[in-house]
């Protein structure tokens, strides 16, 4: 069990990246990446849920008996999701309206549950918090990159509406690469999500190969 923080960080952000290596949590990865801003917002919401639920599961791990652990995990994740849902509805309303349905759906995202089962159930509270947080941030990076690629090719912008959705401080991030109506529409439509994710998995394999690492040929699919 790696309780070494450096490994945890590296695992979460790159080596075992939830999206590109483990292929978990695909639904928000496809649905919420029509722009980099949406991907970033969705990723942060998921990261918050993951950090909080990993921490709680690790704290209570001695109290949670083996037989009822799955219902308890689901309950904890669902409760954290509801907290995020209520808080975003109240204080980040514009972003909430965009993400809508996919905030409650974090509950059935396989990534948080997979990390609870694989890490938090057997670790101390603080390493679990770090694991949840950095797995979540790795997820955020993946979603932002996929969103960025789709947005640049599809609509010719990057981080459009960031000031509206995330706050005025993000205005400087809004960029335009192509003139309006020049984008390849397909990329922001559903098929683009599949294409971009497929090619980005290949890109990560290529980078891993260049770095002399073994490439993972299959995704770990333990949970639905």
């Amino acid at each position: 069990m790696p309780s070494n923080y450096k490994t945890i960080i590296k695992d979460g952000l790159w080596d075992n990246n939830g999206v590109f290596s483990m292929l978990l949590g695909m639904c928000p990865t496809m649905a919420m990446t029509t722009s980099a801003t949406n991907g970033f917002g969705m990723g942060l919401a998921t990261a918050a849920v993951m950090a909080a639920s990993s921490f709680l599961v690790a704290v209570f791990r001695k109290r949670i008996t083996q037989e009822v652990r799955i219902p308890v995990y689901i309950l904890i994740v669902a409760a954290m999701v509801t907290l995020v849902d209520l808080a975003m509805n109240a204080w980040m309303h514009e972003l909430y309206k965009v993400l809508g349905l996919f905030i409650p759906l974090i509950v059935s995202n396989c990534l948080p549950l997979a990390r609870l089962e694989a890490f938090a159930a057997r670790s101390e509270a603080l390493p679990s918090l770090a694991d949840g947080l950095f797995m979540g941030l790795g997820f955020t990076i993946a979603l932002t990159v996929i969103g960025g690629v789709r947005e640049i090719i599809g609509s010719g912008t990057l981080f459009a509406d960031a000031s509206l959705l995330l706050g005025p401080a993000f205005r400087s991030m809004e960029l335009r690469f192509l003139p309006a109506d020049m984008g390849v529409l397909m990329m922001v439509l559903p098929p683009g999500g599949f294409f971009v994710t497929g090619y980005l998995v290949v890109a990560k394999r290529l980078l891993d190969l260049k770095a002399g690492k073994e490439i993972q040929m299959t995704g770990a699919h333990s949970v639905g």
Partner: peptide, 21 residues
């Protein structure tokens, strides 16, 4: 080899999504 497994599945799924459009 680089496309084997999930990546090619994603690309095929993208084509299927185009058909369903």
């Amino acid at each position: 080899r680089l496309f084997a497994g999930p990546p090619i599945a994603f690309i095929v799924a993208g084509l299927l999504a185009m058909a369903f459009m």
